[in-house]
């Protein structure tokens, strides 16, 4: 099929970007979205032009490195799917596809579709862990955890750190990402002791990184490839208020 592409090109964070038009004539349905971009890049490189830079690594939906806005939707039209797992069969012959980087103040553009998401790492650095050193761990079965609790913790822990929640949010808030980690660790006895300290420092860090405030539009969950629940945000807010009151 024939596909028209309008791709955001931007040399670096300082330069101004713009959409450039490309057309691919012979796109097979079974190509993944990134393989479609590979074929475009192959053509560009062979012509001596600069290929479209985009982030990706595992190409199986788990590392969280890929991600772009496809027709205005983070990771594209298919629900619960990362960009690398999206295939061209989701598009029709003659379609025009707009491709842009994830946009947020806290995600500066590196080049073209590549953005810098270190701000998410900084949030984890500020407290997204259990403070246990190697060698300190007690026997694993000494702390039973109900099946349901472990499963609920897993649901939150499934976040792949892609940043789609930020990109899809009109406030560019990282509340979904941050709350998922807070919830996971709060649900497990191993993490509970540090909850109030954790929630305060992670929320503070989130603000310092330049992420916006959550106004409960819930767009994040819709575009999150892992279907991380917005209920985590409610839990985070609850824990935050509790910690603030207790710390007074």
């Amino acid at each position: 099929m024939k596909i028209h592409l309008k791709i955001w090109r931007q040399k670096d964070s300082q330069s101004k970007g713009e959409f450039k038009d490309y057309t691919l004539d012979d796109v097979h349905q079974e190509l993944s979205f990134l393989e479609m971009l590979d074929t475009l890049n192959l053509k560009l490189v062979k012509k001596g032009e600069y290929p479209v830079e985009f982030d990706h690594d595992c190409r199986e939906g788990i590392c969280g490195q890929c991600g772009m806005m496809i027709n205005g939707i983070a990771h594209g039209p298919l629900k619960n799917t990362t960009t690398c797992q999206l295939h061209m069969r989701s598009f029709k012959d003659g379609d025009t596809i707009y491709i842009e980087p994830f946009k947020a103040a806290a995600f500066p553009v590196v080049r073209d579709l590549k953005v810098n998401r270190s701000s998410l790492d900084h949030i984890i650095t500020s407290g997204g862990y259990v403070s246990v050193d190697t060698g300190q761990a007690p026997e694993a079965n000494s702390i039973p955890i109900a099946h349901e609790e472990a499963e609920a913790a897993f649901d939150a822990a499934a976040c792949i750190g892609c940043g789609a929640c930020v990109a899809s949010c009109k406030n560019a808030s990282a509340a979904l990402f941050t709350s998922a980690k807070i919830t996971q660790l709060e649900l497990l006895p191993q993490g509970q002791t540090e909850t109030s300290k954790r929630v305060i420092s992670m929320v503070k860090q989130m603000e310092e990184e330049g992420f916006g405030h959550c106004t409960n539009t819930e767009a994040c969950q819709v575009e999150c490839p892992e279907d991380i629940s917005v209920l985590n945000i409610a839990r985070m807010n609850y824990e935050y208020n509790k910690a603030k009151i207790l710390n007074k």
């Binding site: 190697t134 694993a140 702390i143 472990a150 996971q184 660790l185 191993q190």
Partner: peptide, 22 residues
């Protein structure tokens, strides 16, 4: 065996039986 202890202490949500054990 140590590794399972270490990972559990870090909050790795391993699958659990209904009784709560790994």
């Amino acid at each position: 065996a140590n590794l399972i202890d270490q990972a559990t202490a870090q909050g790795v949500p391993f699958g659990r039986e209904y009784g709560g054990y790994l």
